[in-house]
Amino acid sequence: MSAALVTVERDGAVAVVTMNRPEAMNALSTALRAELARVMLELDGDDSVRAVVLTGAGTRAFTAGLDLKELGVEGLGAANAESAAANPVKAIEQCRKPVVGAINGVAITGGFEVALACDVLIGSENARFADTHARVGIMPGWGLSQKLSRMIGISRAKELSFTGNFLDAETACRWGLMNRVVPAAELVATAKALAAEMAGIDPAMIQSYKALIDEGYGASFGEGMAIEHRTSSARNAQVKGGEVEERRKAVMERGRTQAG
């Protein structure tokens, strides 16, 4: 019996999703893309899951991107599917729960785009990123051309996209692509701990906040400010003073614990 292409491990309110084709550097075959999309949509609808960690099996690759051998036979049409049911990047983006990417190895081209769909990236020292779209002769269709420049600056994004060169973990962290770099043996545990902290916030609140940030990110600054004003006016009008005071005390207590 063949191993599952995508595995899911539950740890309380955190689900760890692993792309599981290590022998092929977790390349995104049609079957893996469909399974990853299915899993992400399923977790989005599971109220017992409050946060997700996404990683790749092994230490060589998060995912090496689209399976180019397969695409050479089938063409690119299916890879650009608009439906979240067939497009794992769209399924990750539409997940209302926080998604922490644990980048355990290379994230190349389509794999780079899968990484960029996550909300937060933590990497091991093995993490490396490369955009080889231009060298392969295809255009990105999962958002890399627009997201990367907004994250690390347009000139750095152009350097990566126009050369296809690899970006190492420390530089990726310094450029703001990843939040931190940790030893490989600690990567998943670190990502799970971060996801568990996110899972400790009221689900409705964190889902609304994620939607607010994402919607504003895709708009101009002025439009984003207007979106925030509309959202905060509607939600904050429903908040009761007593509830805020209780939560404020809990926040202060948590702060004292962290300071210690």
Score class of each variant (00 low, 15 high):
Phe129Ala: 01
Asp168Ile: 06
Leu36Val: 05
Ala211His: 13
Gln146Arg: 12
Met205Pro: 00
Glu74Met: 00
Cys173Asn: 13
Pro98Arg: 06
Ala61Met: 10
Val181Arg: 02
Ile227Ala: 14
His133Gly: 00
Leu76Tyr: 02
Ser29Pro: 04
Gly200Ala: 13
Asn165Ala: 12
Glu170Pro: 01
Ser48Asp: 15
Ser48Ile: 07
Tyr217Met: 14
Pro98Thr: 10
Pro203Phe: 06
Ala157Glu: 04
Gly176His: 11
Trp175Asp: 12
Arg247Gly: 12
Gly110Arg: 00
Leu160Gly: 04
Thr30Tyr: 06
Asn179Thr: 13
His229Ser: 14
Ala172Trp: 02
Asn87Gln: 07
Ala34Val: 09
Met198His: 07
Arg33Asp: 07
Met25Ile: 03
Ser220Gln: 13
Ile206Gln: 08
Val53Ala: 05
Asn179Asp: 13
Glu82Tyr: 06
Asn26Lys: 08
Asp119Asn: 13
Gly111Asp: 06
Asn165Trp: 02
Glu82His: 10
Pro98Cys: 11
Ala127Met: 12
Val120Asn: 02
Asp46Phe: 10
Arg38Lys: 14
Asp47Leu: 13
Gly105Cys: 12
Leu160Ala: 07
Ala81His: 04
Gln207Ile: 05
Leu54Ser: 11
Leu167Ser: 08
Ile154Trp: 01
Gly110Trp: 00
Thr190Pro: 05
Ala85Arg: 14
Gly200Thr: 05
Ala79Phe: 04
Glu125Ile: 01
Ala134Thr: 00
Phe62Val: 09
Ala57Tyr: 04
Met40Ser: 13
Glu223Trp: 10
Asp168Thr: 04
Val239Cys: 10
Arg235Val: 15
Ala84Gly: 06
Val244Asn: 02
Glu228Leu: 13
Pro183Ser: 12
Leu36Gly: 01
Arg38Ala: 15
Val6Tyr: 08
Gly111Glu: 09
Glu42Ile: 08
Lys210Ser: 12
Asn87Tyr: 07
Asn236Val: 11
Val106Tyr: 01
Leu5Ile: 09
Gly101Val: 09
Leu187Lys: 12
Val17Gln: 08
Asp202Asn: 11
Gly72Met: 00
Met252Asp: 15
Leu66Gly: 05
Pro203Asp: 07
Ala57Gly: 11
Ala193Val: 09
Leu148Trp: 04
Leu177Asn: 10
Ser155Glu: 09
Glu35Pro: 06
Gly56Phe: 09
Gly216Phe: 15
Ala24Lys: 12
Val53Phe: 02
Gly77Glu: 05
Val188Leu: 15
Glu125Asp: 11
Ile108Trp: 05
Glu82Cys: 04
Val181His: 08
Val136Gln: 03
Met139Tyr: 03
Val89Cys: 14
Thr190Phe: 04
Asp202Cys: 03
Ala85Lys: 12
Arg128Phe: 01
Met151Glu: 10
Glu159Ser: 02
Gly110Gln: 03
Ala78Lys: 03
Asp67Cys: 03
Arg96Ile: 10
Glu113Gln: 09
Val52Arg: 04
Phe166Arg: 10
Phe129Met: 03
Cys173Ala: 15
Leu43Glu: 08
Ala130Lys: 02
Glu125Cys: 01
Trp142Thr: 06
Gly105Arg: 08
Asn179Ala: 15
Val73Tyr: 00
Glu113Arg: 02
Arg21Pro: 10
Gly216Ala: 15
Ile122Leu: 15
Lys147Asn: 05
Ala134Ile: 00
Pro98Trp: 07
Ala24Phe: 09
Ala226Pro: 02
Glu35Cys: 06
Glu215Leu: 14
Ala78Asn: 02
Pro98Gln: 09
Gly58Leu: 03
Gly58Trp: 01
